[in-house]
Nucleic acid binder design. Structure first.
Lengths: 211, 211
DNA sequence: TAGATTGTTAATCGATTAACAATC
DNA sequence: TAGATTGTTAATCGATTAACAATC
């Protein structure tokens, strides 16, 4: 408890634990030991206990953890006990793919505004949301209380769009472009590279030849 | 050189460096120092040199690196100097999104087979590829020399599809479902969770309140 | 009480950073 | 030669693992 710096890997695992606990809830299992969680998600039991220890004591010695209780603690820790309003800028291939994908909404991320500059797209609907011109960015962010922006524009426009999102008051940005973006210190920026996972796979498939 | 165990973080950064070098090539810059790469992608210059040192000596002391040369070394290291044939299983929201997304093909990953079990989808085209019944999996993997499988089916079918991919002879699997999959040791498995990045963002946006 | 499992500490392991000799 | 920058070593930092006392 009171840990100031939580490893990113820990947070990622908490997210994985939470999904596994959800699965256990569906199977109506109500108590579980760290070793079982560990086996279920492929880490060590010490890892599970250590990760949880950053945030408090959630188990009972000799018994384990109550599944539902631990689940809701994790959801709260991850900030998933609320609904997040999200703006998507760039309704091209990747952008529309993300808008159609259900996985975000399932975890509480609601894409309530979609913007583009392409006149052919503006006015059409994407998953029930009308695509609007980027000019309305500032207005929509304020009226919808949007805190998170997804950047799925072409690489060349990425920094520009990012600057506008920051000016308009979002607190977090998820960058799907391959560009390195500059943001002020108070803005949380994360970069998502869909190809990078395939590239890690390709590296692992190929590199053992050369050692 | 001759390093047996390369940190995953290093491989991810090589991928980022390669993209940055590509950008430099477009700007017709032909020589660059580790410090410049570092500034460009947001790491330390020692990090850049260390990462490269796992694979050889690519620079000239006092001068730096030749951009094109380093780029092609990196592409080779990452296994991106060839075209990979990829099978996509599950042509739902996420699957079709990935099939439409250009970023994979840009890095050499060609989705040449798309399978589903939904009769309504089978026979329709996705980015020029006809969606077929999962029954043809084995045949297509062999005839197209497919080495990589993308799993984008509902969570409940994920393990089953994975087993069939393994039996059919793929070497690498990219799992987009939230399930933990079991595969034999010789199969390279990577899990991609699109929501996890949003959740890291949400954690970082929320957690500072509580410390 | 006996058995089980947590929470936590200390030991280990691995990755990043700083520093600098080598050298263009 | 003087200045710059690499490749590499050693020091630091951080994360994982093993072990076990606490305790249900």
């Amino acid at each position: 408890m009171k840990a100031y710096k939580i490893p990113e890997a820990t947070v990622m695992r908490l997210s994985i634990y939470s999904r596994y606990l959800h699965q256990l809830m569906e199977e109506e299992i109500d108590t579980i030991a760290s070793g079982d969680i560990a086996r279920g998600v492929g880490v060590s039991s010490a890892q599970v206990r250590k990760d949880l220890a950053y945030f408090g004591e959630f188990g009972t010695r000799g018994v384990g953890y109550k599944v539902e209780e631990l689940y809701s603690h994790l959801m709260k820790i991850l900030g998933l006990d609320k609904r997040w309003s999200v703006i998507l800028v760039g309704a091209g291939k990747l952008g529309s793919a993300l808008a159609l994908y259900h996985g975000f909404l399932d975890r509480g991320f609601h894409i309530c505004t979609v913007l583009d500059i392409d006149e052919k797209l503006i006015g059409t609907k994407l998953n029930g949301v009308i695509i609007e011109n980027v000019d309305v960015m500032n207005a929509r962010i304020i009226e919808n209380n949007i805190e998170i922006g997804l950047v799925t524009v072409p690489a060349l426009s990425a920094q520009n769009v990012t600057d506008r999102l920051v000016e308009s008051g979002v607190s977090g940005i998820l960058n799907f472009t391959p560009r390195v973006l500059k943001v002020p210190n108070h803005i949380i920026l994360r970069n998502v590279d869909l190809s990078v996972n395939l590239e890690l796979l390709s590296f692992n498939l190929g590199y053992h030849y050369k050692r």
